[in-house]
Amino acid sequence: MTFPVDRPRRLRRSGALRRLVSETRLSPADFILPMFVKEGISDAAPIGSMPGVFQHTLDSLRKAAHEAVEAGVGGIILFGIPAVKDERGSGADDPTGIVQKALRDLTADLGDSAVLMTDLCLDEFTSHGHCGLLTASGEVDNDSTLERYASIAVAQAAAGSQVIAPSGMMDGQVRAIREALDGAGHLNIPIMGYSAKYASAFYGPFRDAAECAPQFGDRAAYQQDPANARESLREVLLDLDEGADIVMVKPAGAYLDVVRRVRDAVEVPVAAYQVSGEYAMIEAAAANGWIDRDRAIMESLVSIKRAGADLTLTYWATEVARKLG
């Protein structure tokens, strides 16, 4: 009998041995937890399409943020839902707006124990649900929207945001925000650009959570075509040229090839957002007994890091951090 000379299975014989030679290791400090805070509610409200995720009150947000920090989660990114919306998204840069209130609370509570980030977009704040101001014909006006983004960035930084994360995919948004932050004295506030953000079908549950579904049309005119990968590198390099400190690919799971291309092309940290649809699919399949929930969660997160992401935005951040801890 001829025996194989190479026996890779030798290193797979036990769990301890597999852990010892693992090429990819997850760390709680690499996770960023997305959190929703809603104005005008008295109790945390569960999100039906995202089991285990809530629209928080200011008080429940503080409690959940403490739990994330205690588990070792590296960052928190805030999304706000105002009680009143208008055409301009006025609540987004209101010093007394829901995000700014939450920032002040969490800054006082958490100190430097986790990085406090803010999503910067208008869709949660506008009555029409689009990511920018509209022209008379109903199109998103890129350049006037940049003025709003600049104002929002300054308001968020003043309230305590430690990283500004613009997600609207407007041309020139990072430069406009960088100049506004620097002009207001916030030279040391980093920008994490949603640099390669695709017009994805996987955002549906998020739009329930943030109450930001467009009232007409869609966002394909400013988010990327899922068919394009080279375009992502162009967007990433433009963001870096404009002053981004971290770049992001969103969604993560269906775009691992893009994560790898970006990781190979840049020297700055690369983030990937495991979005609401990715979360909901695993939770739904597990609830039906079709997959092993814990293994599926860990496999999905390992694959994102293996593809090259330094940071992962995931709704499982606290849960997985506890398991790793």
Rank of each mutant, 00 (worst) to 15 (best):
K323R: 15
A150Q: 08
L20T: 10
Y194T: 06
G52Y: 07
A158W: 02
G132V: 07
D143Q: 15
D109E: 15
V140A: 00
V84R: 14
A265G: 02
A309N: 01
A165Q: 11
S232R: 09
A307M: 09
Q224C: 11
I191Y: 06
A180Q: 04
M281D: 02
Y203H: 09
K250S: 00
G204K: 13
A213W: 14
A150E: 07
G89L: 05
A220K: 15
Q100W: 00
R230I: 03
A221M: 13
R12F: 13
H66N: 14
Y149Q: 15
P82G: 03
T2K: 13
G91Y: 08
A114E: 01
R19S: 14
S127V: 14
V154Q: 02
G52M: 09
E70Q: 14
A68I: 08
D239R: 08
P190G: 04
R7E: 12
A280P: 01
G52Q: 08
F36E: 00
S167F: 10
A272H: 05
S200F: 13
M192L: 15
V37S: 03
A209N: 03
A280S: 15
R261V: 03
D143G: 01
R293A: 06
Y149I: 06
A83G: 13
S200Q: 11
E67S: 14
C121E: 04
R207L: 10
R9T: 13
V53C: 09
R306H: 14
L240A: 06
S14N: 08
I98L: 03
A199I: 11
W316N: 13
L110V: 11
T145A: 01
A153G: 08
P214G: 04
I81D: 04
L120Y: 06
M50F: 02
F206D: 05
Q215M: 12
A71Y: 07
P51M: 10
R260A: 15
S127G: 04
G204Q: 10
T118N: 03
R12S: 12
S27D: 14
V37W: 08
R219C: 02
V53A: 04
Y315C: 00
Y222K: 10
D105M: 11
V258H: 02
V268G: 04
D264G: 03
A209Y: 06
R306N: 04
D208F: 08
I47A: 12
Y194F: 15
R12L: 15
A199M: 10
A209T: 07
P8L: 11
L58Q: 09
D239I: 09
L240K: 09
L17E: 13
